[in-house]
């Protein structure tokens, strides 16, 4: 939300990182730099927001997984996390609110060679986009979903989300949220995702490893990342700054790989169960489509890898 108006290009030259003089000889570039549209920095995210931290893990995971970056497409919806697409120096699409998944569906089906990553927020993916995400998981479409969950609608000023814990105050639940929240891993598990994990922006290395996992795994993969929203969620709930949230994640997170997803629901101030909850094999959508059509049509089936027009 910080400095949301104005063209960053008009803010003057961007300063360089200050490198210790004795280290100039050996200094590499910041590894995240090559993944950023540096001409758009500084970004609009607030001080203490955790979205940028997840982008660090994303960049390092792409490096570690040795992905051909020309093959990566990032698709975002609308909201604070929806801005990720605009900041990564990759083919990137900032679509409409809630529709990152169906856009990604068309992108992937027309060019299955792409590594399609949907990077969006909890409200975008699970409220307005809720129908799309369960169907993409059901189909086991080969897309990778990174859901940044900050429990609130940030871009519009801190309204209640389907993830807001009971008891939390938001600008549209001024007397406290009484609606039960979604347990996102359980929902994705039930819908058929082949990989479901949850980490927080404190768990930068684990998050990076999880992202490497999903870049290498076929099928619909889902990672929930709990992140601070100091400006809206935490301020309304007297939870302090972004750093306070990070300390809370450090203190309250319990790693339970393979935990039944029914047991990982979040509460206002309870433990945060993190880990890899689901990692299973199911045939992927394109494989199913191709084997069905080949079986039914035989030689008449024309399989085209990339639907590119002339």
């Amino acid at each position: 939300m910080n400095g949301g108006v104005g063209d960053p290009a008009e803010l003057g030259p961007r300063p360089e990182a200050e490198i210790p003089p004795e280290a100039c000889e050996c200094a590499p570039e910041n590894p995240v730099e090559q993944f950023l549209r540096t001409d758009r920095m500084p970004h609009i995210w607030c001080p203490g927001c955790g979205i940028g931290t997840t982008v660090n893990s994303f960049a390092r995971a792409l490096l570690e997984a040795k992905v051909d970056l020309d093959r990566v497409a990032v698709v975002s919806g609308i909201g604070c996390t929806g801005r990720v697409a605009g900041y990564v120096r990759l083919d990137s699409f900032h679509t409409t609110h809630g529709r990152a998944i169906p856009f990604a569906t068309g992108l992937k089906l027309a060019n299955p060679n792409l590594l399609v990553v949907v990077y969006s927020g909890d409200g975008d993916l699970f409220a307005i986009g809720g129908n799309h995400i369960i169907h993409a998981a059901r189909r086991n479409l080969d897309i990778k979903v990174i859901c940044v969950n900050n429990f609130v609608y940030g871009m519009t000023g801190g309204q209640v989300a389907p993830t807001t814990p009971v008891g939390a105050t938001t600008t549209t639940t001024p007397y406290g949220c009484f609606e039960p929240a979604f347990n996102l891993p359980a929902l994705m598990d039930a819908a058929g995702a082949v990989y479901v994990a949850r980490w927080t922006s404190y768990h930068v290395r684990q998050l990076t490893r999880a992202m490497v996992d999903i870049f290498r795994k076929k099928g619909f993969c889902f990672i929930e990342v709990i992140t601070p929203c100091p400006t809206l969620y935490q301020r309304k709930n007297r939870m302090g700054e972004g750093l306070d949230a990070m300390k809370y994640y450090k203190e309250k997170s319990k790693v339970r790989h393979g935990a039944p997803t029914s047991e990982v629901a979040l509460t206002l101030d309870g433990d945060i169960i993190v880990g890899k909850f689901v990692d299973r094999e199911r045939p992927e959508y394109m494989e199913l489509m191709r084997s069905q059509l080949a079986a039914q049509l035989g030689d008449r089936y024309v399989e085209v890898e990339h639907l590119v027009c002339s």
């Binding site: 679509t95 529709r99 169906p102 990604a104 569906t105 060019n111």
Partner: peptide
């Protein structure tokens, strides 16, 4: 979904 899936497909070629 249908009306934006086509946009995705177009941007893939």
């Amino acid at each position: 979904a249908a009306s934006i899936a086509i946009a995705g497909a177009v941007w893939a070629g």
